[in-house]
Design a protein around this nucleic acid. Structure first.
Lengths: 249, 249
DNA sequence: GTATATCTTGCATGAATTTGCGGTTTTTTG
DNA sequence: CAAAAAACCGCAAATTCATGCAAGATATAC
């Protein structure tokens, strides 16, 4: 990876997350801490970022925009995203849905990753295209304004033509009895199709949504291969799911 | 391998992968590092690529670095977008391409407008979905990293199924002799399909690109119904086009 | 056809950039 | 206060860059 490329990537990350941690960057980009520090120093000299102990902040962050609530949910989703990223390997073919958790996943993909990502979510696609090495495939159709993903029969039949290694879904509700559920009929149709087209289903959700229910069922728990939350894998809240054979991360 | 051939190859690689590494090129083409360096220097002087330590990047990668230039172009594009918006009426079915000018158009749509917009450009779709009243249709397929629009046969055949009232295209070059031209083969295929599927073709461009040429032809001037630039309609630069029967705005 | 001029390429040299490592200092945290 | 983490400093190895120069290729003029 070229130095200029690296600087652009770091700046992108800073603007995206409002902060970066040196150790994370050096691990993601696979260079030494010193190199990252020098990069941050350079960007700071140019006024692009604000360097702090352990990393750097976005200059706009200095004006104190965000509320603590947002930061809280953000942290959880960041943790979930990082766990999810650890499952992805070079060369994989990956279906993803939409939602803020998946956006965070897209933002957390290490720059060295070479893989193919398929999605119908416009905001998620928007994140994918700024990644240097991944192939992006957009699922086309009418876009649902509500969920910002493409929906409809055409989209479903396109998904059916695929066979992906993994499918990452951000989910809105899950419980033992009814499995995964949601409240938008069109979105559920898409999710069902994605589940059928992937070898492995990985569900992402913040723990708040564990043991809740929505009107429309997406699939039951037996379809889920892996469940990722911000909690440690041995949290009691997750044990019932572990016992039904779901891998917990 | 001839020098001209080599330059074309390098430029193609840059546009394809968004970056090239000097050492890779010299090995692939089997010439010395110096030759490659001189080639990159020449292409950089011509503004085709951006030379960095160790290789070169696509000019589209320039986003995070330069802002002052973009603000200047921004004003022009804002004017163009506003002229374009005046053509759009409620209920229309509108095909649009990609590019910064079209993004500006998307941002300039009045909130009260009810119409249907179709595009394959991820950034443009991203703007459309935040509009309260328009219907959005995404064209799906592999996404070209360079242009950030969907490309490929599937996308083209989807476009062919449509019949739109108007097609708005941001163009990269236009002159009397060769009409509209561009430098990315895949993008040109998409543009051609869009032109064929619309009743009326409206081309948007900043005046800088008037009377310039790129390697690949998109269509000739007779196909254009309306041409919009930031200049007043009676500017002498535009008169030749007016005389060939194009409406100038 | 020959001679001249121009262009292109590879090589040598030296300067500049980039990067990782070890050792030291500073900051953070419990 | 003490351990751990991060920052800083200088150095050395590797890579890349810039430049001049000479040999070969190509074009042009006579």
């Amino acid at each position: 990876m070229l130095k200029t490329e690296r600087l652009a990537y770091i700046l992108h990350q800073v603007n995206l997350h409002n902060k970066v941690i040196s150790a994370d960057l050096s691990q993601q980009i696979d260079v030494s801490d010193d190199t990252i520090r020098r990069d941050l120093q350079q960007l700071a000299d140019e006024g692009k970022i604000i360097k702090v102990h352990g990393g750097a902040l976005s200059p706009s962050f200095h004006h104190g925009i965000n509320t603590s609530q947002e930061v809280y949910a953000y942290r959880q989703k960041k943790i979930i995203a990082q766990k999810a990223v650890s499952l992805i390997e070079d060369g994989m073919f990956i279906l993803t849905g939409g939602g803020t958790t998946i956006i965070e996943l897209a933002r957390s993909l290490p720059p060295s990753l070479h893989a193919t990502f398929i999605s119908g979510s416009i905001p998620v696609l928007f994140e994918y295209i700024s990644h240097p090495n991944i192939e992006v495939i957009a699922i086309g159709e009418k876009v649902s304004k509500n969920s910002k993903i493409t929906v409809g029969l055409e989209a479903i039949s396109k998904i059916r033509e695929l066979r992906a290694d993994m499918c990452f879904l951000g989910i809105n509700a899950i419980n033992q009895q009814h499995g995964v559920s949601d409240n938008d009929w069109e979105v559920v149709q898409i999710k069902k199709a994605m589940i059928e087209s992937a070898n492995r289903l990985i569900c992402l959700t913040i723990s708040e949504k564990i043991n809740s229910q929505q009107p429309i069922q997406v699939c039951d728990c037996s379809k889920i291969d892996t469940l990722i939350t911000e909690l440690p894998a041995d949290d009691p809240l997750l044990q019932p799911y572990r016992h039904s054979g779901i891998q917990i991360l």
